[in-house]
């Protein structure tokens, strides 16, 4: 079976005032469909950069990345945007909801961008599923942090993505709320059979995943199931 995500010799260098800086160095691994992966490591180890590269938000300085059968290196920015829209879902630490849209409209957005017919009904159904059926017309500002993240999760699953990328999904939430968000994330992941790639420094969250990839100073130091 072909891996759904594969990284081969991926490196990322940026130039700074003090000269070149290597953020990621020669990273290679495969992720099979249906797996749940936790990318762990201390602050500055390159976790978020790796997530951005795997999801096609950025391009590596060296190496190749394949995502759902397409080589990201060969796509231009609009091509990667299309791939993201069709195959990828995101959940961010800072929620990244559009403040000018209601909860319902936020969930509808990816559906509308893809030209879906029944965007509103689907979005409402998803919000019902994450327990926000009564708050469809609320704006992000009117929702608590946990509620905002639930809207973000509903939005991430709206397109029934092949891969869901989550960047510290509970980083901005208290422990209790974080716990319920985690439950929701794993439950939806199981329901839809999505591949989950999540970046966290929460070890308790990491062990719930089927596999942990540990980064240190831009290198994979452990890859264990």
């Amino acid at each position: 079976m072909n891996p759904i995500v594969s990284a081969r010799g991926v490196g990322k260098q940026v130039s700074t005032a003090a000269g070149g800086l290597t953020i990621l160095d020669d990273i290679s691994f495969d992720i099979q469909a249906g797996e749940s992966i936790a990318v762990v490591g201390v602050s500055g180890s390159g976790k978020s950069t790796l997530l951005g590269l795997l999801a096609g938000l950025d391009v590596p300085s060296s190496g190749t990345i394949n995502l759902v059968g397409e080589c990201l290196n060969e796509l231009d920015e609009d091509g990667r945007a299309r791939l993201r829209g069709e195959q990828v879902g995101f959940v961010f630490q800072s929620f990244q909801l559009l403040p000018s849209l209601t909860a319902l409209e936020n969930v509808m957005l990816p559906l509308e961008l893809a030209g879906a017919e029944r965007a509103e009904a689907q979005a409402a159904q998803l919000l019902e599923r994450v327990g926000l059926g009564s708050r469809l017309s609320h704006y992000p500002k009117q929702l608590s942090g946990g509620e905002q993240q639930r809207v973000a999760i509903a939005r991430a699953f709206a397109m029934q993505p092949a891969v869901l990328f989550a960047d510290e999904p509970t980083g901005n939430l208290d422990a209790v709320t974080g716990q319920t968000i985690n439950e929701l994330l794993f439950a939806l992941n199981a329901e839809q059979g999505t591949t989950l790639v999540l970046v966290t420094h929460d070890e308790k969250l990491a062990v719930r995943c089927s596999r942990q990839i540990r980064l240190d100073a831009g290198k994979v130091v452990a890859d264990e199931a």
Binding site: L57, E77, D78, A81, R82, L83, R84, G85, E86, V88, F90, Q96, L97, L98, P99, S100, L109, P110, L113, A114, R155, M159
Partner: peptide
């Protein structure tokens, strides 16, 4: 900028 970045992230092309 933020709104646009999210949309780009959600699959919007430049012409979108």
């Amino acid at each position: 900028f933020d709104v646009t970045a999210v949309m780009r992230c959600l699959g919007a092309a430049q012409r979108d």
